[in-house]
């Protein structure tokens, strides 16, 4: 997969988390993910269409997303519930929007669907195309999360 399609999602993820949740985020080394099992406990998935079709997902460990949403709301969140799921959907939406804006600047225009959210340990993430799944792990002081980017071959 073209790395030029990946970097905007990394940049967008850092920008969204830092701006909306005041969280310092460190990106790890991207890797090729072989299975569909989510690394995290709650995942936002969003379909993209345009010069290529694909999906992005953002999957958070419980501890990490509770800290992120606590910062976003200005109050302590203690359990994975519908409010957390809603927040993951909106974070996915914002990451997509920010990345698509960067991609547009190099002539790659994408449209996005409305995100869906899955919760539960070891749930599956279904990407809409069969292309390679590039996973990028991120760390915060309150736990980890991973984004996956998958575009058709």
């Amino acid at each position: 997969m073209n790395v030029k399609l990946i970097n905007p999602f990394i940049n967008a993820t850092i920008n969204v988390l830092e701006t909306m949740a005041f969280v310092n985020v460190n990106a790890g080394k991207p890797y090729l993910k072989k299975d569909n099992v989510a690394v995290g406990d709650v995942t936002g998935v969003l379909g993209l269409t345009g010069i290529a079709n694909g999906t992005i997902s953002v999957t958070f460990e419980s501890k990490c997303i509770l800290a992120v949403v606590s910062n976003m709301f200005g109050e302590t969140m203690t359990e994975l519930n519908s409010e957390i799921a809603d927040a993951v959907g909106e974070l996915t939406n914002m990451i997509s929007g920010q990345a698509r804006r960067e991609l547009e600047e190099v002539g790659k225009v994408f449209r996005a669907a409305i995100p869906s959210v899955i919760t539960g340990r070891n749930h599956s993430i279904t990407h809409y195309t069969d292309g390679p799944k590039i996973a990028i792990p991120f760390s915060t002081e309150n736990g980890d999360f991973t984004i996956e980017v998958c575009f058709e071959r």
């Binding site: 909306m20 976003m72 709301f73 200005g74 409010e83 809603d86 927040a87 959907g89 909106e90 939406n93």
Partner: peptide
Amino acid sequence: FATMRRILKN
């Protein structure tokens, strides 16, 4: 998204 309505309300 209720999240965004909540952030904007705050």
